[in-house]
Design a protein around this nucleic acid. Sequence first.
DNA 1: ACGAGGTCCTGCGAGC
DNA 2: TGCTCGCAGGACCTCG
Length: 286
Amino acid sequence: MPELPEVETIVRDLAPRVSGRTIRHPRLHKSDVLRGVTRRTFLAGITGRRIDSLSRRAKHLIFLLDSGRRMVIQLRMTGSLLVKRGRLTAEQERYAVLTAPLGGRETLVFQDVRRLGTIHLLDEPAWGTYTARIGAEPLDPGFDAAQFTAVLRGSSQAVKKVIMDQQKLAGVGNIYANEALFRAGIDPSRRADRIAGPAAARLHAAVRAVLTEAIDARGTTVRDYRTGTGQRGGFQFSLDVYDRAGEPCVRCGTLLATTHAIDGRQTTFCWHCQGAEPSGGPRRGR
DNA sequence: ACGAGGTCCTGCGAGC
DNA sequence: TGCTCGCAGGACCTCG
């Protein structure tokens, strides 16, 4: 599932290949991915437009068009984006949502098996509203431990849910939330507003470190994720807890536990390394 | 403002 | 073998 590092990888791969290119004859194969725009308006809005830049905001891909509008693609669970030279494979044909020929036998392809992904087409004011609803970028140089601590302080919900809340913090999904909490030695179910001081600073550093390392490894491929060049990422070999339930903790050897108690999402953690906090004490009986 | 639950969507694996 | 069913889950929604 593409989170911040995966989307960042796709942007780095594709930005040089799409910038300055013109969308010739786009085809929208599935209309149910559109949000806030009709099929007709969407196609009219991108046809013949030049892509001035491709960038990332949280987990969203932002195509800035020469009209000043932005095509915003959210990959969600199974979406992928690539520039394909020549003919599409049978699988790409089958799951293509949007194909946009760029000239020179190259085609921008957005494919998505489950079609939970979305496409918006936003003018400048709408983009302003859209991006304002998304929280701080965790890798922004100005996003320091004090700002992060303030985010935690603002909620009594489980810390894992808070750091995955896109309105509070941008780009962290289930994989990196699990990893960062393990690295920081923090119980995922602990109330966010009870975490401060050194523990909050540890989590702040862990979130940034795990995201940075995952970008360096070109993302995590558990199932569907592919880079902008169609390859697998490399960070799945560096995961400490995600998808490792029942396996021994890399730090202490305790068998990793799993629960769905936090927001219904799979949470994997080590009782020993994350069960107890200096200021909070262990939390059991979830 | 909170938690719980529904919705979207399809492939996959378990169970019968 | 062939069927049904539960699950995967990010973002958004409604309800109490």
